[in-house]
């Protein structure tokens, strides 16, 4: 089986999440093939004639019948994708890449920090962790985005917020008075969360600069670089280590990442133009 050949999936539904973010639900075109993936992995999605891009999976790893991706309209391919409708076909290669450390984190307090569209890949980890809620200690989900209108998965977040066994906090960069929630960058929420720094796993996904500030805040609270995980992004053409584009110093984002233990990449993280 040539890993460069996409498999066809049919769009079951396209859902507009926010003004510029949408979710596509895919089902296999042939047979009852299940799509197994790990939380945090991504697929290469091909839109006929337009191109192929890496997009992380945002669905529940335990629901293998439907394949869900959430993405923002930022370039040619995502723009074309946003115009597709139920019944249209998308090419899929994957799943590729490393996963969130949901198993290794068992017994720990969990701090999940998401920025903007970064909530999409982290949602897979949230599903996994909540499936075995009792295996973890305190769980905090911190989410920052631009405005209240940009909040992803609003209804799901509300549901999570109402749970007493979760500390869910959402913050926006700016808001009108109709918003009664937090305003400020997501890092300002970190000192307000209770966790045992010696026994906490943090998972972060968002713009690199937001991850940088989050890491520094977490480490200020006493978390070690061994317990902080982040999802990195670079240009990617093949997803399987052949094209060279996603190199990040010693690492390939596609096969060594996209999820990295901070300890592993701290010699690169924040270095300019690496």
């Amino acid at each position: 089986m040539d890993p460069m050949i996409p498999t066809q999936y049919k769009i079951q539904r396209v859902k507009k999440e926010t003004q510029d973010v949408f979710t596509v639900e895919l089902i296999p075109t042939e047979g009852e093939r299940k799509f197994s993936f790990g939380a945090g992995q991504f697929n290469m999605l091909y839109i006929f004639g337009t191109g192929e891009i890496p997009i992380s999976i945002s669905g529940n790893p335990n629901k293998t019948g439907v394949l869900i991706h959430t993405t923002r309209t930022v370039g040619m391919v995502t723009k074309a994708m946003s115009k597709l409708k139920a019944g249209d076909t998308i090419g899929v290669r994957g799943p590729y890449g490393s996963t969130w450390p949901v198993k290794e984190a068992i017994g720990n307090d969990i701090v999940i920090i998401a920025g903007g569209i970064g909530l999409a890949p982290l949602r897979t980890a949230i599903y996994e962790i909540l499936r075995e809620r009792e295996s973890y200690g305190r769980i905090a989900i911190l989410y920052g985005t631009r405005t209240p209108d940009d909040i992803l998965f609003k209804r799901e977040l509300e549901k999570l917020k109402s749970r007493l066994d979760l500390d869910v906090q959402v913050t926006v960069d700016r808001a009108a008075r109709t918003w009664n929630g937090n305003v400020g960058v997501v890092t300002t929420l970190i000192p307000r969360v209770r966790f045992d720094p010696k026994n906490t796993t943090a998972m972060i996904c968002g713009p690199e600069i937001m991850m940088k500030y989050s890491i520094s805040e977490l480490m200020k609270s006493g978390l070690s670089a061994e317990k902080i995980f982040l999802s990195m992004e670079r240009n990617m053409k093949c997803g399987i280590g052949f094209c060279g584009h996603c190199q990040y110093g010693t690492e390939f984002i596609c096969k060594d990442g996209p999820i990295f233990k901070y300890e592993r990449i701290k010699h690169l993280f924040g270095k300019r133009e690496i």
Partner: peptide, 10 residues
Amino acid sequence: CFCTTVEDTT
């Protein structure tokens, strides 16, 4: 050196 890119055309 092994880097490649891909081009999609119609």
